[in-house]
């Protein structure tokens, strides 16, 4: 099995920081593409924690990588659909800025 040096905690802390940056980016950015990138960052933070838990917790050895691979596949599917939707709305509106998508607000 692969060996990673050190302890579990730093990896989880790093994952937490990456996840928070992603969440902040999602909430703070107005560009739909940037928001999509922020979501990818959050999912990669989850991947990092899944792999780290899978390496350091004896009962989960090997499972973490399988979990991470599945998450990567799901993230790819999600990004594909997301980009398609963003392109579709860009053709209709000629802007990627989400705060200008307000036709239905009453």
């Amino acid at each position: 099995m692969s060996q990673i040096a050190g302890h579990l905690e730093p990896y989880l802390v790093l994952a937490g920081i990456l996840f928070s940056i992603g969440a902040f980016g999602f909430l703070a950015r107005r560009n739909a593409i940037s928001m999509l990138m922020s979501i990818e960052l959050m999912l990669n933070a989850v991947n990092l924690s899944a792999v780290a838990l899978g390496v350091f917790i004896p009962a989960l050895v090997g499972q973490g990588i399988a979990f991470a691979l599945l998450i990567i596949a799901v993230a790819a599917a999600e990004a594909t659909v997301g980009l398609a939707i963003v392109i579709a709305i860009y053709r209709n509106r000629k802007t990627p800025l989400v705060d200008e998508y307000d036709t239905m607000r009453q």
Binding site: M42, G82, M104
Partner: peptide, 18 residues
């Protein structure tokens, strides 16, 4: 309107999935 709804659904849906 449909694409606008889809963008909002997708962005918040994936955010909540994460």
């Amino acid at each position: 309107l449909s694409t606008e709804g889809a963008v909002k659904y997708f962005l918040l849906g994936s955010f909540s999935s994460a």
